[in-house]
Amino acid sequence: MKARVIVMPKQAVLDPQGNAVRDALHHLGLDAASVVRVGKFMEIDLADAGDRPALETKLHALCRDLLSNPVIEDYRLELGE
């Protein structure tokens, strides 16, 4: 089983990296790029999923405590094969 976690800067938080990448895209001819936001993508292989609801609760807790910084980031958790 795999868990996929996407961590993105919160909408309201400045993303200097995204802005720098957007400017570089403009410079290289992609004027259509209006907003770029740079986040993180994590893939977690889970050996024995066990009790799925408990696992999901645990993963959400870890997303909040470890994988993202809730002060400045949002996360999305996907559990799948």
Partner: peptide, 14 residues
């Protein structure tokens, strides 16, 4: 350079 966003030197090379 250019804040070294993405990777160090990644934007500067262009």
């Amino acid at each position: 350079s250019y804040g070294d966003y993405l990777r160090c030197g990644a934007i500067a090379r262009f």
